[in-house]
Design a binder for these strands. Structure first.
Lengths: 114, 114
DNA sequence: AAAAAATGCAACCAATGGGTTGCGTCATTC
DNA sequence: GAATGACGCAACCCATTGGTTGCATTTTTT
């Protein structure tokens, strides 16, 4: 991948929904629970928050569409697990942004010094 | 700061609006523009997107409240600049999450091996 | 086979978000 | 000093979001 393509509009459209999924306190809480508390069911998860089970289900679906969690039926219950891959994408995106910023600063510095 | 406090609910409430501000393609685009294109005015910025100037103003205010951009009046125009500090916060938050995940994996591994 | 547990599904509701248009204000420039 | 340019403010609109309640469905469990 070329440096110039690092922050293309295509990547913006990819990164935005990912950050949007992270942009809710309850969903971040769910991620932390699944992260450190291991795979869990909806009913157990909803016990840790003061919203209904159905609300938690919706949040988990949002996280799922963003690729941050995964679920699997197991008998009568559905087990949700954290999915670290997309987190790395978000991480890389922030990295590229701050790198772009550093490059700009260097350009400015070079310009001032000449 | 203790490790146990690294992902406290207080931090969730702090991180959520930050990610929410990043969770929109137009706003990410604005950040990229301000990042690599240097400080700009609203009208110049809105020329780069196919939404109205007023819409861009709203987006910039969201970014501003999240601490991702800063503005200063200069004569009849207002100059917007990128603010890298809060980006570092977001970065650190993701870092803590994935570290929490690694710790959990290690715990699991230790448990399986005994 | 009946009760209980875990989830799915749908309707509904209030608030927020992203967008618009219209107009007023203030600094510049001619 | 009058036109222009950049911006602020407010009202309004529609779609989305986060939440609820109620009830149906599917596995367990007893």
């Amino acid at each position: 991948m070329s440096r110039a393509e690092a922050l293309s509009p295509a990547r913006l459209k990819d990164a935005a929904p990912l950050f949007a999924a992270l942009g809710d306190a309850t969903r971040l809480g769910l991620l932390v629970s699944l992260c450190s508390g291991g795979p869990l069911t909806v009913t157990r998860l909803s016990g840790q928050f003061d919203v209904s089970r159905q609300a938690i289900t919706k949040h988990l679906e949002v996280l799922s569409e963003a690729g941050l969690v995964k679920s699997a039926r197991h008998g009568r219950e559905r087990i949700w697990t954290f999915e670290p891959k997309r987190l790395e994408d978000a991480h890389q995106y922030l990295e590229r942004l701050s790198r772009e910023w550093d490059v700009a600063l260097d350009r400015l510095k070079a310009f001032v010094e000449t």
